Simulated assay, not measured.
Amino acid sequence: VCKDAGVPPMLVKDENDNLVPLVDLQGKFTKEMGEFAGMYVKNEYYADDEAPERSVDVEIAIKLKEENKAFKVEKYVHSYPHCWRTDKPILYYPLDSWFIKVTEVKDRMHSLNEEINWKPESTGTGRFGNWLKNANDWNLSRSRFWGIPLPVWRTEDGKETKIVGSVAELKEEMALAVKAGVMTEDIFADFVSGDMSDENYDTIDLHKNVVDKITLISASGEPMQRESDLI
């Protein structure tokens, strides 16, 4: 509705000229919010005994009333999602995500599906066939801690990207990083490329807390950090 009405999104540019919201990833207003900068958008985000007497939404409402910019301000009770772990309010936040561009190949997938001799036939021509025919791009990344790390390393400005396809390839990239001085050692030094034994793979750990310590080097000589998302 806002887009159709020509109302611009409430976004500002960060240090890399990327459009970002007025609330940072810690749940605080950014510097562009003036007197409200640095304040949590929810009082529940403050540490114990540190929350202000009046929450920031109340402060904003008061300011709008004082400046005669609010027609009416009132409180009403409504449902709001909370984290099941912490019981704190959830803040919905627009984030960049990684997608598989299914739309480029969905016609081909649908065509191949019609060549399969499904038993019963309705399995392939019904729900599954309709799903393929109307498939959208697949958002495969998740912003969390546990999971399979995306094997994607990028420079800080996002202009250079490396996608690593195996542990052997990662070791080769780490060797280049050590040579360039952005890493001190190959943290998978005990891993033997080509050895598929359990004993060999027990020498490494591919979880986020380990692979995020790996810094690679780009073709232009810039350090590269792994994308923080997981699958």
Rank of each mutant, 00 (worst) to 15 (best):
V7R: 13
V7K: 11
P8N: 13
V12A: 11
K13D: 08
K13I: 04
E15N: 10
E15P: 04
N16W: 09
N16F: 15
L19S: 13
L19E: 15
V20K: 07
V20Y: 01
V20N: 02
P21T: 01
V23A: 05
D24E: 06
D24Y: 01
D24N: 14
L25Q: 10
G27H: 05
K28P: 01
F36D: 14
K42I: 09
N43R: 07
Y45Q: 11
A47D: 13
A47S: 11
D48C: 04
D48N: 10
D48V: 11
A51P: 01
E53S: 14
V56M: 09
V58Y: 09
E59V: 03
I60K: 04
L64C: 02
E66Y: 02
K69T: 02
F71A: 12
K72E: 12
K72P: 04
V73Y: 02
E74L: 15
H78M: 11
H78N: 09
P81Y: 04
C83D: 15
W84V: 12
W84N: 15
R85A: 13
R85P: 02
I90K: 04
P94A: 09
P94C: 06
P94I: 07
D96N: 15
S97E: 12
W98F: 15
W98D: 03
V102R: 02
E104C: 05
V105A: 08
V105M: 07
K106N: 15
K106G: 00
R108L: 15
H110P: 06
L112P: 02
I116M: 10
N117V: 10
K119C: 08
S122R: 12
T123M: 11
G124M: 05
G124V: 01
G124D: 03
G126R: 00
G129F: 05
G129Y: 02
N130F: 01
W131C: 07
N134Q: 13
N136H: 10
N139L: 13
R142D: 05
R144Q: 14
G147F: 03
I148W: 11
I148Y: 12
P149V: 05
L150F: 13
P151V: 06
T155G: 07
T155K: 04
D157A: 07
G158T: 00
E160F: 03
K162Q: 13
S166E: 09
S166H: 09
V167S: 05
A168W: 02
K171F: 09
A175T: 14
A177Y: 01
A177K: 00
A177R: 03
V178D: 00
K179F: 03
M183C: 11
T184I: 02
E185L: 05
I187Q: 01
I187F: 00
F188A: 02
A189D: 09
D190H: 06
V192Q: 06
G194R: 08
G194T: 06
Y201P: 06
D202M: 08
D202K: 13
T203I: 00
I204T: 04
K208T: 12
N209R: 08
N209F: 07
V210S: 00
V210Y: 05
D212A: 00
L216R: 06
S218N: 09
G221M: 07
G221Y: 06
E222S: 09
Q225M: 08
R226F: 10
R226L: 06
R226T: 04
E227G: 01
E227D: 14
